[in-house]
Design a protein around this nucleic acid. Sequence first.
DNA 1: GGAATAGTGTCTCTGAGACACTATCTA
DNA 2: TAGATAGTGTCTCAGAGACACTATTCC
Lengths: 251, 251
Amino acid sequence: MENSNKKTGDDIDFIESYNPNNYNRPNTSVDLVILTIIDSSLHVLTVKRAEQPFKGGWALVGGFIDIDKDKKIEETAKRKLFDKTGITAPYLEQYGSIGDADRDPRYWSVTNVYFSLLHIDEINCLSVIDGCSVKWSKIIDNKISDNLAFDHNEILTMVLDRIRSKALYTTIPLHLMPETFILSELQNVYEIILDSTIEHKSFRRRIMSSGILEEVGKRKLESGRPAKEYRLKSGVDESLYFFKRNFEGLS
Amino acid sequence: MENSNKKTGDDIDFIESYNPNNYNRPNTSVDLVILTIIDSSLHVLTVKRAEQPFKGGWALVGGFIDIDKDKKIEETAKRKLFDKTGITAPYLEQYGSIGDADRDPRYWSVTNVYFSLLHIDEINCLSVIDGCSVKWSKIIDNKISDNLAFDHNEILTMVLDRIRSKALYTTIPLHLMPETFILSELQNVYEIILDSTIEHKSFRRRIMSSGILEEVGKRKLESGRPAKEYRLKSGVDESLYFFKRNFEGLS
DNA sequence: GGAATAGTGTCTCTGAGACACTATCTA
DNA sequence: TAGATAGTGTCTCAGAGACACTATTCC
């Protein structure tokens, strides 16, 4: 230990006696991958940058932690999400953190990445449909057509991969649904995320076996037999059900 | 947007024109949950704190990002791990980041949490068996008997939960094994992590079906039939195999 | 009735659990 | 030989895939 302390010199025991404000630290931010489904396609919420760097380019929603307002990082994420969408009780999950010397041309930067899945009806449209500085960007083939600022394209792709892999064994796509929905709609959303078709009997058996949905009535469709409408069972606060098996044939 | 910008005032577009060194930012660090198995028990590497706060208490290995030395956060984690263990090619995975106003009494603090699984033979013992400032703390019932500094007890528990859940559907416990091992040893390690017994035929069928091990010979045991010795198949760089089904009966 | 969509019956297949069985070593 | 540990054979069971079938609506 004496040896290793001498060698490295920037050990926790050493450095913490410094005033951190005098020390050359990385910059810390929060970025959000906010996803919804519009016209049967995943879309991500993007904002147009008003300042350098990447001025005029599109970026993920993000910002800095306000250490006076925010008690924890998740509150920063919720605040940013609320600012853009007006949503107060989002499904929000941390992806992880990404930090390196190059991701921001200005400084060594660490971003804490969160993702949120929501149904378009949940949002307060007024705060979004405002000029062209915020828009939903359509995701095709795991990315969007615009190049995003910073490393946001990579972040988007990694988050999408995470969600896709969780869709193989959880009910995470439920968070993209409206309050009530029919099973074929839910299946469509799974298929959009997984980019693959699912056998409908298997799908129904699987979802119903989770026991987290309750029937709320029937819905007449444009054609064909009316479908049972479901919502998340009241009292089920853990809406993320884990199955013991993955969907197979996919990876 | 104009509205939300006016309201929050700390939007990315607004704040980034500030020199970050003049802004009241959170402090950023890296913490490591370094795990190994000693005498059939999980142990975590802990260091004795030489300075306030929590002076004299035990804490996880950790420290600050050195923006001159480290190109990315993972390098900070590798550097810290190397300083304490001498290991150059660890299994290292990010857990995520944790940040709030209270976790460090000195300032609003964000830590980037990594975990590493290793076999005790991999470490350079000299850098560890040094005074009493670094020690392996035995994990019993998801925690250690000492109270750790900061929120490190919670971090330890959350990381252990993550590893346990990954042991249900991956080969992550392989990283706790020596270079060659026999299947009953690997099964023991799974059972230590999962805190539950596994039926041995199921276990062997499952592991062998992964195809990531290769036989390297036989080992004579103290008693009984000699066992086949295995190692990670050469050419398999992805040593983390994902099974389609969980171990069942556990959760 | 036909078109369309919801929903079921039921067979196969994979892999987990259970557990009895065989194999190979030492003393 | 007995004791110990390695390793197999094989049955059951849950749940995924496949796909034909029935049910209910509107026209």
